[in-house]
Write a protein that binds this DNA or RNA. Structure first.
Length: 492
RNA sequence: GGCGGCGUAGCCAAGAGGCCUAAGGCGACGGUUUGCAAAACCGUUAUUCGCCGGUUCGAAUCCGGCCGCCGCCUCCA
């Protein structure tokens, strides 16, 4: 059985059948770079990272495109709307492009720490103004768009399928209109393809309709078309973008090209913080940098970025995830357990007895892999996939307790950790820096000096001194563990 | 007002008609181990899935009602 994914368009799980066998093109709505990335970004991009990783694990050749929105996006639906980047730039007294650059770096930095693979292509909206103008021209030629006062609007009434993704009809939408409607529009539901820029507007480009800037939804249509073709296999994004953003993308693209735009739509659900929507005004808005540093009043400690990743994988991408310090703390503990187990296996491999893998164990491992794949094939059930990883942890610890477990067996275990925990889930690392970087080596030697002193005290039965040393190290975040032969250390 | 989702142990969270007297993680408690810890291991921790009815031989899973929470309809991952 192959991979099944839930298609928001048909509202069913469907077997993935790419247009071109063995190759998958994916477009995911990327961030608007006007602030540091937050927990919501993490949920979305970790979810799609898992999709890409699993497809590659299955042997697909994947082209993963994720845009960077560095222009557009009015702050509201009325004509008076201002570009979010421009608003933020004015606050920080920087050029909008400088700001976009700064936050683009911040975005990639945090995604790297979450161990998300970089997209194959990260196209910028400002780098595709020409293509966007071309698409607007096409839509005007085909009669789907009209110009008024230097702005161009898409005439929703001309596109019969409008709203097919979110399953809304025009009447409902009109009844729900809450903002002031531009007098230029023929219908309140029409949306802007190109906006006229006032002379003092910084971000503007020449166009057949005068100076202006592209509308909110245009970039995704244009860039996905440019890099993945007129029909793409998978388009992903946050649930909140389903309407109007994705429905507008469909309208523009299909009106222009007369072919299906996206075969399979995927939407990840949202994050709440302590059961409330995360919002800047609610004092529960947590950026990833704050979470990693523990620099937020709702957090009791700093968290490993991979613990954040693990918390996200603990639930399903289509379920809402409630974020809390307690939940993150639990994820951190679980992650530590996995990490320590993997490290222990790798260490033991150097000293374990030679031999072929034990058949019974090999069989257990094979079953785990099958269970893991079955879970992932069922619309990426990472929660079950993760539980399989914990089964592997338990089995591994038992194997490690048995001093006779041979290298062949341990090697099979390590491979499974690498493939499932590493390649697919991205929570097991190929290498842990304990003995890697120069600083780590110095640190290791330093702590070992203290460990020797303490062990000397223990031999002398001076437990008061031994405990004092341990307590002092504990205070600075170093935990000692007395194993059978040696004492090891780790950071909290 | 319209559209959609959710409510499972102390916390997070899978499960979507019989394999469920409900995965997994965290926490807690008891035990093994330890100088004491930590780590690890073993065991215990929901006869029950918001509430009330119904369908069915059988429901956490389907249907109806009620209660509570959330998202979208405006930029937002």
């Amino acid at each position: 059985m192959g991979l099944k994914l839930y298609n928001s368009l048909t509202r069913r799980k469907e077997e993935l059948k790419p247009l071109e066998e063995g190759r998958v093109g994916i477009y995911v709505c990327g961030p608007t770079v006007y602030g540091h990335p937050h927990l919501g970004h993490a949920k979305s991009y970790v979810s799609f990272d898992i999709l890409v990783r699993y497809l590659r694990y299955l042997g697909y050749s994947v082209t993963y495109v994720q845009n960077i929105t560095d222009v557009g996006h009015l702050t509201d639906d009325a004509d008076e709307g201002e570009d979010k980047l421009v608003v933020a730039a004015r606050k920080e007294r920087k050029h909008p492009m400088a700001l976009a650059e700064y936050y683009t770096h911040s975005y990639f930095e945090d995604m790297d720490r979450l161990n998300c693979h970089r997209p194959d292509i990260s196209p910028r909206a400002t780098g595709h103004i020409i293509e966007q103008i071309e698409l607007v021209k096409t839509l005007m030629e085909k009669g789907y768009a009209y110009e008024v006062n230097g702005s161009v609007y898409f005439e929703v009434a001309k596109f019969a399928d409008y709203g097919k993704l979110s399953r809304r009809n025009l009447d409902e939408m009109l009844a729900g209109v809450r903002v002031e409607v531009s007098p230029d529009k023929k219908s309140p539901a029409d949306f802007a393809l190109w906006k006229k820029a006032e002379p003092n507007h910084i971000m503007q480009w020449p166009s057949p309709w005068g100076p202006g800037f592209p509308g909110w939804h245009l970039e995704c249509s244009v860039m996905s078309m440019k890099y993945l073709g007129k029909t793409i296999d998978i388009h992903g994004g946050g649930l909140e973008n389903q309407f109007p953003h994705h429905d507008c993308e469909i309208a523009q693209s299909e009106a222009a090209n007369d072919v299906q735009f996206v075969r399979l739509w995927m939407h990840n659900n949202m994050i709440t913080v302590d059961n409330q929507k995360m919002g800047k005004s609610l004092n529960n808005f947590i950026t990833l940098k704050q979470a990693f540093a523990g620099a937020h009043e709702r957090l009791t400690r700093h968290y490993d970025p991979i613990a954040v990743r693990q918390l996200i994988l603990n639930s399903h991408y289509r379920s809402p995830l409630d974020f809390s310090d307690a939940a993150l703390f639990a994820a951190q503990s679980g992650y530590q357990k996995i990490t320590e187990t993997v490290k222990a296996v790798r260490k033991r491999m150097a000293t374990a007895v030679e031999g072929q893998a034990d058949k019974k164990t090999a069989n257990q491992l094979k079953k785990m892999r099958e269970k893991f794949e079955a879970a992932m094939n069922d619309d990426l059930n990472t929660s079950i996939a993760l539980s399989v990883l914990f089964e592997l942890v338990r089995l591994t610890q038992k194997l490690l307790e048995d001093g006779n477990t041979n290298v062949g067996t341990l090697n099979l275990v390590d491979v499974l950790f690498d493939r499932l925990g590493g390649d697919v889930l991205g929570i097991v690392k190929a290498e842990y820096p304990q003995a890697g970087a120069a600083d780590e080596q110095v640190m290791d030697k330093l702590v070992n000096v203290l460990i020797q002193q303490r062990n000397q005290a223990r031999e002398n039965k001076d437990f008061a001194k031994a405990d004092e040393l341990r307590a002092k190290l504990d205070q600075i975040g170093i935990v000692l563990e007395d194993k059978q032969e040696v004492t090891t250390w780790r950071t909290k």
